[in-house]
Design a protein around this nucleic acid. Structure first.
Lengths: 132, 132
DNA sequence: TCTTGACTTAGAGTACACTCTAAGTTGTAG
DNA sequence: CTACAACTTAGAGTGTACTCTAAGTCAAGA
């Protein structure tokens, strides 16, 4: 009955925000290890599985590709011996995210400037409209 | 001969980093207005065109979709009367970019933490290796 | 005149990340 | 026993944003 305390695909979908389709897809392509089954057919997810999925979603949110997430997942399943490679991947990701954030920040400043500049034009046009 | 002082598609591709294919594609879908032609066939881009393309690339870098860039481009071509709508679009974009940056920042902190944590495990393992 | 290369077009093809469909199985509630 | 919901699979389909192909035009240099 240990299985029954674990979560169905629907519950995991609700908990993570991923669709059931996507959860099966991620498992099929190796982002998630083969999930244990109840009745030998229905998936039963553990809390650890949820934790891993949450981490995957964070990697994805940083812009990491499915391809790289697969590599990371594969290393992770091989255990602590692959820690150095994983640290390397994370360092590379860190650099990329830092670069993207600094680019985003520059673009954000441009957007703010345009909002300000265009806003002033609109304001001054309103001020020049003669009241009825 | 005014045309000849302007830039060929190759020069614009080199200057912007977009491919010639992409430049034609952007024009075809209305992100870029119909570019003037020399010989009535070959495109000749003005400095203003380059400026617009650079701005488009910045919008794209913020994650704005082609669909929204088309709307923005269409408004832009209609002149100052559409400034309020454009300001609205930019404000919405600003919010999205700010949200994305704060999410990226949270994920970056997690990545840094993992690098630190895994790094320490690797270090301590190295220290425990008996020297030959 | 011939060739080369830069350009043109319409439309087909690609990569990525899902997202859905169809057909079938299983387990519980009535 | 039956109906139903929840699950299963393989594989097809979708949306986005390019990216490329094929066939053709055109001007300038050998």
């Amino acid at each position: 009955m240990t299985q029954d305390t674990n979560l169905t695909i629907k519950q995991v979908a609700d908990a993570t925000g991923l669709s059931e389709h996507t959860l099966r897809y991620y498992e099929r392509i190796g982002l998630i290890h083969p999930i244990d089954r109840a009745n030998n057919t229905h998936r039963r997810y553990t809390e650890d599985d949820i934790g891993w999925i949450d981490f995957l979603m964070k990697l994805r949110a940083t812009g990491m590709s499915i391809r790289d997430m697969r590599i990371y997942a594969h290393l992770q399943r091989q255990g602590d011996a692959t820690l150095p490679q994983r640290v390397e991947m994370l360092k590379k990701l860190q650099c990329e995210v830092e670069a993207r954030m600094s680019e985003l920040n520059a673009n954000l400043n441009l957007i703010r400037y345009k909002i300000q500049y265009y806003g002033e034009i609109v304001e001054s046009r309103l001020a020049n409209v003669s009241p009825e």
